[in-house]
Design a protein around this nucleic acid. Structure first.
Lengths: 127, 127
DNA sequence: TTAATCTTTCCAGTAACTGGAAGGTCAAGG
DNA sequence: CCTTGACCTTCCAGTTACTGGAAAGATTAA
């Protein structure tokens, strides 16, 4: 799999996929005869995991820590569990925030007439 | 109201409040005798509007556009509704993604023995 | 064969802050 | 009145996480 197929599968721009290897967030991929980066399913899963983590406000460094959970075989599973549980709590908090954001916006959208009259409650609320 | 009170009321860092005026996203605030920025309820509402919009995933430029919509009463609410509906769909997609991230991590946490042995069963998952 | 569409590296630029120095202001306590 | 400490100011530099573009090599489809 070349970089654009992998990027598409992971839901990331090609540039970003290269960038993540440049900063050693992921391993440098194998290269083809011609020097093209080649990817497999495992690297795509990893990139996808990073994308999802990034979308929810985890910094690159936090992603590094999360990936480390899976990769550092020297860690005891107790430590993995502790770190993962902490991140899980953070994710659950983000879920609650996102839900309230969703409810708020949904309420506004549904109470908006959407016609030609400039009396939209979205504007009233956010203004 | 000085900048820190306004920032607190709007839920933004002081630095960010100054930044938003620097980039002309909001009007430059009035100044006290000593040169301190002074804010009123209206400017706090506007800053709060921007914070909320940013939390909904609008970029600074989109915030500029939304502020323009809000301030131009000749626009129809249909246009505002269209933009807000699009953002709502994006939030719903984010919710699905966040759930999958949650599930993945929860699986890791729950399948971990939590003892001293480094044999978490899904450590191989990401390659 | 040729045009289009990949891919590479490298370097520069962007978005949206964020930190820190150097210094002025203000309210409270001694 | 003086000092202390928490404010505030400007300016400039640094950060994070990409993102764009040039120049050149590789691959594919017609």
């Amino acid at each position: 799999m070349n970089i654009s197929a992998a990027a598409k599968a992971a839901g990331l721009p090609v540039k970003t996929v290269r960038y993540y290897a440049d900063i050693d967030l992921v391993d440098a991929p194998a290269r083809s005869e011609a020097g093209y980066r080649t990817y497999d399913e495992a690297s795509v899963r990893k990139l996808s995991f990073i994308r999802r983590s990034r979308e929810f406000g985890f910094s690159i460094e936090e992603c590094r820590e999360l990936l480390g959970l899976y990769q550092d075989r020297d860690r005891t599973s107790a430590e993995v569990k502790r770190i993962a549980s902490k991140k899980l709590q953070e994710i659950e908090e983000k879920q609650r925030e996102l839900q309230s954001l969703h409810d708020e916006l949904a309420h506004l959208v549904h109470s908006c007439r959407g016609d030609q009259r400039p009396d939209c409650p979205i504007m009233d609320y956010l203004g």
